[in-house]
Design a protein around this nucleic acid. Structure first.
Lengths: 190, 190
DNA sequence: GGCATCATGTAAATCGTTACATGATTGC
DNA sequence: GCAATCATGTAACGATTTACATGATGCC
């Protein structure tokens, strides 16, 4: 079976070190990741799936504690990197926007910061294309929609506009950060 | 079992008249509703669930055609109206934003346009509250996030800001529309 | 006659939700 | 000792996905 976004979320959270199921649940519950489920009935089966795939491995519990921390295997890291490297698809822009942002968020901890500018270009491009299709629909069909339908549609349009604006700002932000780090490197080696 | 958003989507689409499973699938596939599934394996079981609940009923197929159009029953309409009347909840703002917009979109066709201003006030209010909690998290935790994590977080912040801006504009838009309709009524009765 | 589209369904596998259940550890 | 929290799981149910399957209708 194809792993779900949730599986990659877990892999991504394990990038920064081994965590137990409970740790992962707490992380999800206490941060803006709470769009994802933190129920034990999802977490523990998911961890066993990942373990069966060989993408994570549990260390032995210390003493009598039941706690088992999971760490990424090399295969797990490779699978996550392959997922992060995937191009931005139109379908994801329209239907799974949070999946794309999750992938972007994990670029730096996965050591793939150099992919971030291209990701942002693709993200802006695909949002632009989808927005154009929305505008076409709006021109042709919006008059037939009820008032609140038209307004709800406009809500979507504004969301995509905000995403494009964010992508442009994020690119500038990345470039500035890159410049700052280069300067620091130069100063450090002086 | 508690009906899912998908079930209410079908009820809402049936507000404007009887439709077959195929019609509903086409509607979803050809409009910006395509975040919802149009697979037959979801549609036909869902229609049978709604039929079992007594919320829709199928008319008899005409002649030898297999097509069966479903129409809303009074119970179905009442269930949809009860769903539309529910207050805007914090949890939905954070985790199920499209569900809220779907509810808003169906207000006018359900004859509940008078609820739209209150909905927008609640929507703006709950977005504001959630945004405030994001800002608190940002102030406390953002420094520990990797660069792309911080930027992804900022993406979320901008989405909520865009939603609030939309809600304000939509309220003005509704008020203007209301004024226009009142004027037209007066002119019509003169 | 043949093709596109209309039209409805089923089966298997998997996944998520909800509720239940249990026990260890830590701090007071 | 007790309560809060840490910690991991299972069972039942229902829903979704994917793929398969079938047949009718309308048009050229």
């Amino acid at each position: 079976m194809k792993p779900a976004t949730f599986d990659y979320l877990l892999l991504g959270l394990l990038l920064s070190g081994p965590l137990s199921g409970y740790d992962l649940r707490s992380l999800i519950a206490d941060t803006p990741l709470s769009t994802y489920t933190d129920s034990p009935g999802s977490m523990y089966p998911a961890l066993r799936r990942l373990e069966a795939r060989g993408w994570v491995q549990a260390d032995e519990p210390v003493g009598r504690r039941r706690r088992r921390a999971f760490e990424l295997t090399e295969e797990g890291r490779a699978a996550l990197v392959a997922w992060l490297r995937r191009p931005v698809e139109r379908q994801d822009v329209a239907s799974h926007p949070d999946k794309l942002l999750l992938r972007f968020a994990f670029l730096a901890p996965a050591g793939l910061l150099d992919l971030a500018p291209r990701f942002l270009e693709e993200y802006e491009q695909e949002n632009r294309a989808y927005l154009a299709s929305l505008r076409r629909y709006q021109a042709e069909q919006a008059a037939q929609l009820p008032l609140t339908g038209r307004l709800a549609f406009e809500h979507g349009v504004q969301q995509y506009r905000a995403r494009m604006a964010w992508a442009r700002r994020a690119r500038r932000n990345l470039a500035a950060e890159q410049a700052r780090m280069t300067t620091e490197d130069r100063d450090a080696t002086q």
